[in-house]
Amino acid sequence: MKTLQEFEAFFQKEMMADLKILDQRRRDQVKRYTWIVLLTLLGLLLCVVLYLNFGRHSHSSAAGYIYLITGLAILITSAIVMSTWARDKTFYQDFKQKVIEPIVGFVSPDLQYEPRNFIGADSFQRSRIFMKTVDRYTGDDMVQGKIDKTQIWFSEVKAEYKSTTTDNKGHTKTTWHTIFKGLFFIADFNKHFQTSTVVLPNRLGKGVLGNFLNKMNWVRREKHVRLEDPEFNKHFVVYGEDQIEARYVLSTALMQRLTEFRKKHPNPIYVSFVNSFLYIAIAYQKDLFEPTWFKKLTRFSLVKEYFEDIQLAVSIVEELNLNNRIWTKQ
């Protein structure tokens, strides 16, 4: 595992030169956009002033329209200029290549990075973490590779479902709701197992009422599994198809490790064990591994965040001891 100090050294030595160029391009684009916005506002203001002074007193209504049409033309022109000439078309792609890719390589040379690829919707559904049917699914920033003995895959994903409502006038309205947005991680688990076990954040607490409500679940075929670790139960609620296999997968050691992992990260964590694979979904509000327009790219505190988000996913292997292959699965 790389430390933050090591990363800072790498950042200064290997990334700085590229970052400076990228940051210049970012600033140029922000500058261009600022000018365009200013000029557009000026043009619009001019139209309004001219209309108030001359158009209003004119006898024909056509004269009034001239100012309106001119104003619209100004808006359209600036929009076109902003999306063509003024836009740095390769900035996004170069950002991924010059910033995210080197960080992935730094975290582990055995990892491959594909900015446009992502964990497929079928894998997402196979995890049995989220039971809602997915209507729209996207993602990016796929990382995959082998950490010692454990194959891993992770990417940013966003899964949504839609609901349509029809009002009394017959207008239908479609609303999109997020099922999950964040980091989705898959690893080849170190034990064989056949049934599925799902570990969800315990939102209801472990009191009598919370326990009772957690037991009620009509959406999944897995049954509530009450485990013996009170600290673990405070953070998670477990559902499994098989009471024994759920405990085989969630050994007392793994429960402790999951609790520790949960305590370190404030974001909601969903875990499942299906078909000898481990799935972990970590919810994020922010978009992961994306450039920002208004922050300096050469600032360590910004780039550090990309490093930490990648490191978090890769650290799962170590934190959950997945390279411990003392059973029959190699």
Partner: peptide, 8 residues
């Protein structure tokens, strides 16, 4: 695991 399941 079986013992823990039994205990539960």
């Amino acid at each position: 695991a079986a013992r823990r399941a039994y205990n539960a």
